[in-house]
Each structure stands twice: as structure tokens, then as C-alpha cells.
Design a protein around this nucleic acid. Structure first.
Lengths: 169, 169
DNA sequence: CTTGGAAAGTCAACAACACTGACATAATAT
DNA sequence: ATATTATGTCAGTGTTGTTGACTTTCCAAG
């Protein structure tokens, strides 16, 4: 399981990364991500919502009051695409869009009690899988997991990610 | 960064996993996966192919001669969906579908030289990001990364995943 | 050797979710 | 006053997934 390492290169502790190791990592990402999304997807079949609604609900729950523009950046989609999702959530009473106090052009997004209930149902399932994986892999593996994922993100998104509330020990 | 741990629970080294830690892990998966697919997606814009074609090409490259049914299981889509992708790849001369020697109902899939060239172009980009993340995070983080992802997969897929060639040190 | 079922391919219809482009409205900034 | 920003909306399109129905080919068991 240990990854090959060589000091014969330069200063910064270079890794000896074979093509196969990298390909295995690529496949692990693909398979794990599919499992990771499967639980909420199954739940969403019972409603008339999809994965896009889940993502919006997730971030509104994480940053109550965030603006549409911020959500746009986090989700990485066009405003037309997000708007379709957001409209149904507001119409169905899961999300509330309050006019900004400081800048009245902005809309601050909040989950209603019903929205929060769906968020909990979805994230319960997703967290259960994450928790199980964490327990199986162990504490040091979890730290490494997060480190690699964070190193993989685009820099601007990493800033947003770090700005979010972190319950890390 | 360290994950809380408690020995006050039971035998199997339980982790003290807060809701926030789990949510951070969920967000890390989302953001990292998006970055992870962005490089090949950018390349594919120059061709008339999409992410689905990339995935098919990836696994055909990894297991030359695999059957349509095996590929179906790995990709987790319907045969109609895969067939649309596979047909264009065969028509365009990137994939060859040879009738099985033993069972002539099966088709064994192979990349043509042109298919292998595209596979390399796509995976070069993806591996570059993976390699950079590995180097940033370090060797022990990489091991943990893989462990958590593997623990997250569905069991049947994990079998296929493990069956694939592994260049692990 | 016939028949049942598995593997593969195809056609049609449809849904989710992304995109571009154009345009409207309201409010802030210059 | 004018330009820009934030948001919303309409129309059209593309990729990728889904069901359902049907055919062809072929292996294998009765």
C-alpha cells in the first residue's frame, strides 16, 4: 500500500508515481464518486427533484443567506441552469429568497423548515456512507483523503471551500 | 487537521466524527471531482465526444478485450446508453469490436491506434492533475486517499476495481 | 435437434441538466 | 445621467441518462 518515494530527485520529497498508481487513483475517484451520489439520488426519485436541487440545497444550508452569485460560483453552472432549479425550490416552499438589506439587487437564500427537512434527509444518507468509509479507513487515512482532494481542487474554489465552516478537530 | 479519536467507545478504534467533518468531506468530494473531470472535458470540446466516450475509452484501454457486458457493469449505465457511445467510437475508428472466439455472441473491445492516441491525450491531462495533487499531499496522504475511496465504493464494483491491474508499490 | 435464454444491437420516446444567446428589470456605482 | 451589476426569463440546443419493445445471433440443455 505504501507509495514509492525517492530522495534521489531534488529537495521537496518527490514521489515515485507510476502510471498505474495514477490510473488506479483515477478509477477510485470515478467509482467512489458514483457510490457517493447514489444514496441521495435514490431518495430524490421519490420527489420531483434531481441532483441539481440537492447541490443547491446543500450549499444554502451550509451558508444561509448566501447570494445567488455566490451559489453560482460554488456550483459552477450558468445562471440559467441554476435559476430553473432555484425557481422550483422557491415555488415549492423549500427555499426563501429575501431581498438583500444592504444591496437590494441581491437575493439572500435561506432554507425553509421544509427545505431543511429535505436537506437533512439527503445528507443523512450521504453522511452515513462517508462515516462508514471513514471508520473503515481510519483516522490517518481520513486526513490524507482530505489533503489529496484539497490539492486537487481549483485554487479559487479551494478558497471558498476553506472559508466554509470546518468542524475539524 | 487531525481527526478526533476516542478510545472510550468500544474495541474497534472508533472515530469521533462530527457532522461538520463529514460535511467537509462531502464538499471536498464534490469540488475535487469537478476539478478532476474538467481537464478531459476541456479537451473533448475539440472533438465531437463527451464524458461518456472518455469513460468507455478509459476502461477499454485498461482491460483490452473486455466484453460489452463487463463494460456495462463498470460504467453503470444501460446498454442503450452505452451502445450510442460505442457505435460512434466504432464508426469513427477509435474502437474495434471483435466477435468473441469462444462465444461468438460476445464482442471483445479494443482501442485502435487512433483510439489509444485519444486515450493518452485525455489521461495525460487527468494524470497530471492527480500527480500534482499526490505530490502536494505526500505519500501517506495518498495511501489514505485511496483507502477512503475504496471503502466508499459499492462492494461489487470494488471487486472489479481490485481485479484491475494495480501498479501499487 | 429443437427450444429456451443470454448477449448484443436497434428504434423510439422521454427526462434531467447543462449550454448559448438575447433580452428585461431593478438598483447600485460612477 | 449613464454605465454596470445582480437577477430573472425565454427560446433553442446538446449530451447523457432512462424505459420499453423488438430483432438477431448464438450457446446450451432437454
Amino acid at each position: 500500500m505504501a507509495v514509492g518515494q525517492t530522495a534521489a530527485q531534488g529537495g521537496e520529497t518527490l514521489l515515485f508515481l507510476t502510471d498505474e498508481q495514477l490510473r488506479k487513483g483515477i478509477e477510485a475517484m470515478f467509482f467512489a464518486y458514483r457510490a457517493f451520489t447514489s444514496d441521495p439520488d435514490r431518495i430524490l426519485e421519490n420527489y420531483e427533484y434531481g441532483r441539481a436541487h440537492h447541490r443547491a440545497i446543500h450549499f444554502i444550508n451550509r451558508q444561509p443567506g448566501l447570494t445567488v452569485n455566490t451559489l453560482l460560483t460554488l456550483l459552477g453552472v450558468t445562471k440559467q441552469s441554476l435559476n430553473r432549479v432555484l425557481r422550483t425550490l422557491v415555488e415549492d416552499g423549500l427555499v426563501e429568497a429575501r431581498v438583500g438589506r444592504k444591496d437590494k439587487r441581491e437575493r439572500n437564500l435561506f432554507l425553509t423548515p421544509r427545505g431543511a427537512a429535505l436537506e437533512r434527509e439527503l445528507s443523512d444518507a450521504q453522511r452515513a456512507r462517508m462515516r462508514a468509509a471513514y471508520r473503515t479507513a481510519g483516522p490517518s487515512a481520513v486526513a490524507g483523503f482530505r489533503q489529496v482532494l484539497e490539492a486537487m481542487m481549483d485554487p479559487e474554489i479551494l478558497r471558498h471551500y476553506n472559508a466554509m465552516r470546518d468542524g475539524g478537530a
